[in-house]
């Protein structure tokens, strides 16, 4: 397998460097005249990925914004004198001022502290559920495609059946029964439990062409266990797609969290999330617009930056993407 890996790497290198615009001769050398390869400085795969990612200004912008938001969620509470669960009853629905930087809610909670907390919750729910969704859908999607025959038929039927009822309705039913501080955990479980199905179908389609490849057959005929083939050969070969989907999945998970909390079905007081803050803001659109505006701005920044990173990653590492080849 190690030979296979290096060959693949060389091939990958060929394409990569060619798109970089370096003279083709330099690329051909290491392959055709193996001996001289030592003199050449090879460009590693990661370096290429990073370089391609950094070539897109929008992707770099997204990365910077996301880093700032994460730092804000982690350490933002330290610079603020107020806590998200300690309302200031002397300032109810107060406009932004020196005392309360982003104003207060109707209940007197400091908006800055609430947003830091809410952003943290939204990020946590988004990242955890998106990661779990991708793990589950990768294993099940490849397994359904790998076993073929009856397993594939039954598996696809079950996936289609699960997709019949919109997952949003099912998540709402589950999350409803949760309350208080464990709400975010239930929300994560709910979003994960019904979020993997669509992705599993996509991954199954991708695996259908992978399973015909020689190294998979070779592994099969050598007697490698099915589970091992799935985990060691199939899933890693979908790695780039999985990483991209995980990043973009954060956007949809955050959107779902926002929607459910906004309807009053997700995270509830005393805990808070950006969706919960929007719900609070809705009731006082006329009198206290800042309760609505600041969480909205943070939400758009969050989802937009993640989307830009995802698009940048797709161009940098997706072997199936056709968008990379046409760069000017």
């Amino acid at each position: 397998m190690s030979d296979m890996a290096t060959e693949e790497k060389d091939l990958g290198l060929n394409q990569d460097v060619a798109t970089e615009g370096t003279p083709a001769a330099v690329v051909v050398n290491p392959v055709s005249q193996g001996g001289d390869a030592q003199d050449l400085k090879r460009t590693g795969r990661m370096t290429l990925y990073v370089r391609r990612f950094m070539r897109r200004p929008s992707a770099v912008f997204g990365l910077v914004v996301l880093c700032i938001l994460i730092l804000f969620a982690l350490f933002g509470a330290m610079v603020c004198p107020w806590k998200y669960d300690e309302p200031d009853f002397t300032a109810l629905a107060a406009a932004p001022s020196a005392d309360h930087w982003l104003g207060t809610t109707i209940g007197g909670s400091d908006m800055y502290a609430m947003i830091v907390r809410g952003l943290g919750r939204s990020l946590l729910v988004g990242i955890i559920s998106s990661t779990l969704i991708m793990i589950i859908s990768a294993v099940l999607g490849t397994a359904i495609a790998f076993f073929e025959g009856v397993v594939e038929k039954v598996g696809m039927w079950i996936l289609d059946m699960l997709l019949t009822i919109p997952s949003f309705l099912l998540v709402a039913m589950i999350v409803r029964s949760s309350s208080g501080t464990s709400g975010w955990l239930w929300l994560t479980i709910g979003i994960t439990a019904f979020g993997w199905i669509g992705y599993a179908r996509v991954i199954r389609t991708l695996t259908m062409s992978l399973r015909e490849l020689d190294y998979i057959r070779a592994a099969k005929f050598m007697g490698v266990g099915s589970f091992r083939i799935i985990l060691r050969h199939l899933v890693p070969n979908l790695g780039s797609v999985l990483i991209i989907n995980t990043v973009l999945g954060v956007v949809s998970a955050v959107n779902q969290e926002t929607a459910l909390s906004f309807l009053g079905l997700g995270i509830k007081a005393p805990d808070t999330s950006l969706g919960t803050l929007l719900m609070n803001g809705q009731s006082s659109v006329l009198t206290a617009p800042w309760i609505l505006l600041f969480p909205s701005a943070v939400l758009i920044l969050l989802t937009f930056s993640v989307q830009l990173i995802g698009d940048g990653l797709r161009d940098a590492i997706d072997p199936y993407s056709r968008s990379a080849g046409k760069a000017e």
């Binding site: 906004f262 803001g281 659109v285 909205s296 758009i300 989802t303 937009f304 989307q307 830009l308």
Partner: peptide, 18 residues
């Protein structure tokens, strides 16, 4: 389109109301 793609419906609706 990317901006509309990622904007949560609640945010869009409430901003339009505002």
């Amino acid at each position: 389109s990317t901006l509309f793609l990622v904007t949560p419906a609640a945010v869009l609706g409430l901003l339009i109301v505002l």
